[in-house]
Design a protein around this nucleic acid. Structure first.
Length: 434
DNA sequence: CGAGATTCATGTGAAGTATACCTTTAGGCTTAA
DNA sequence: AAGCCTAAAGGTATACTTCACATGAATCTCGTA
């Protein structure tokens, strides 16, 4: 009971936070005294909005048709279709860089299947999980527990033996008597942390189940990921494969145009904004999600400044805001010790131009801990934390040997200067530094 | 001069520990017959 | 006697620590030309 409550609280604070970072509530938005507040709201309501329908530009929006992905849709649908006849479809594996429409295509197919299945009351159940989410689905126990929760079981966050969780999961499945389609987004992250035994277990489930059937849909950003797997897992997981290639600038433009038409008022978007937006995203390996986000943030900026149109300037400032928001989101949710480590790295990196090594970071971190009366973690642990930051892309760490002078990680921050400052400030607040 | 040994600072794996949480069980208390 | 509550016992996952060994190129050493 207590942890249910806890989860709820967590969820609430997350919601609040995301609305702030998305610019729905702006920290600086408050106006003068209470008297003027009413007037402000009136004005806000009367103000003509640039947006016709902003939802279209949010990252969780699912369009009716997905442009330039018809073939992929068809392949995915082909693989999953047998589910409608109550057969177990082949396991499916999907690769592609971020923002190439993988998740979108899968979600879309899933929604369609669900619709058809519901209309004919077919025994079909989907579970979609993003394995990257920290403290949700990043270990074997948590993943299985999370799936079981989707099947209507309550599982404590810790305390049960893992086999027991498996058993609960099996029983829930048998009970359901369904075909279960398990969609694991960003599996590479999971396997990196929890090993591939977990996937092996999942692929083997069917042989122990009598009534229910499970099919896996794995989604990965890393194309080489499949090579690291145990051959047994590899062969059964990728019975079918679909590869998503990045969008080119022209396609991005097409996508943006469609969305913009839905989202903005007729003359809401200025000349050349969309091509520029597409160009920026194409430069970053054709990430459509970013392109759309960019457009949205630019629109929000324009609106806040009471502009009639989104202009190129808005686009430019949006580019900075976005990168920051992404990293801020990531960092805000990190545990305190991680934040302290990152703060140490940032401080060191602005203090000097030469490379930073693990030892320096640890020294700085230690004094930082002494300052804030935190119990410092050991160097061993910091080493692991650095490796994790490297994985998530906030820093770049390369293990180098300095010969006589030992072996270490050569760390550099992969953030633009402007972001760098903001983040550091944010961290110093979080750490209660003055 | 060059091959091999040495060295340093830290990477990395394995095992151990603390903490938070779970279920089960046993004992004590209350209640109703 | 049955039912309920509580605390203790016994168990697990996770984050972290401790211990011990692995790494790999710059540097040192020493034999040789």
């Amino acid at each position: 009971m207590r942890y249910v409550f806890h989860n709820l609280l967590n969820l609430l604070s997350k919601c609040l936070y995301t609305s702030i970072s998305r610019g729905i509530l702006q920290k600086g938005d408050c106006v003068g005294s209470d008297d003027s507040l009413g007037a402000y709201f009136e004005g806000f309501l009367n103000k003509k909005s640039l947006f016709k329908n902003k939802k279209v530009l949010l990252s969780n929006y699912c369009p009716d048709t997905i442009e330039y992905r018809e073939e992929h849709m068809r392949s995915v649908a082909q693989v999953l279709a047998p589910v409608l006849k109550g057969d177990k479809p082949s396991n499916l594996f999907i690769y592609g860089k971020t923002g190439t429409g993988k998740t979108l295509v899968v979600q879309h197919t899933r929604a369609e299947l669900e619709r058809v299945a519901q209309a004919r009351s077919l025994p079909l159940k989907f579970v979609y999980l993003n394995c990257k989410l920290k403290r949700v689905a990043d270990t074997e126990y948590r993943l299985i527990a999370e799936i079981a929760r989707h099947l209507g079981k309550t599982i404590p966050p810790t305390g049960l033996p893992t086999d027991e969780v498996y058993n609960i999961f099996y029983r829930a499945l048998e009970h359901l008597d369904y075909v279960l389609l398990l969609i694991l987004d960003e599996v590479d992250q999971l396997v990196g942390k929890a090993g591939d035994e977990l996937l092996y277990n999942l692929t083997r489930i069917n042989s122990t189940l009598e009534h229910a059937q499970v099919s896996l849909v794995g989604i990965s950003n890393d194309v080489r990921f499949i090579d690291y797997l145990d051959p047994r897992v590899k062969s059964s997981l990728s019975e079918e494969e679909v590869v998503f290639s990045p969008y080119n600038a022209l396609q991005l433009q097409g996508i943006l145009n469609t969305r913009a038409r839905l989202a903005f008022t007729t003359h809401g978007v200025g000349e050349g904004v969309i091509p520029k937006c597409a160009a920026i995203a194409a430069r970053e390996h054709g990430d459509a999600r970013r392109a759309i986000e960019l457009l949205r943030v630019a629109g929000e900026l324009a609106e806040r400044e009471n502009h009639e149109q989104v202009t190129l300037e808005h686009l430019n400032s949006a580019e900075h805001t976005i990168e920051r928001d992404r990293v801020v989101d990531l960092i805000k949710t990190q545990p305190l010790q991680y934040q302290a480590t990152l703060y140490a790295i940032l401080s060191l990196s602005e203090r000097r131009d030469s490379a930073i090594f693990t030892g320096d970071i640890y020294d700085y971190y230690s004094t930082l801990c002494a300052h804030t009366h935190m119990r410092p973690l050991t160097q061993r642990r910091i080493s692991d934390i650095l490796a994790e930051f490297d994985m998530s892309g906030v820093i770049t760490a390369k293990i180098i040997s300095k010969g006589r002078y030992g072996r270490t990680r050569e760390v550099s921050v992969s953030l633009p200067q402007k972001t760098h400052h903001k983040i550091k400030q944010l961290l110093s607040e979080a750490l209660n530094l003055s």
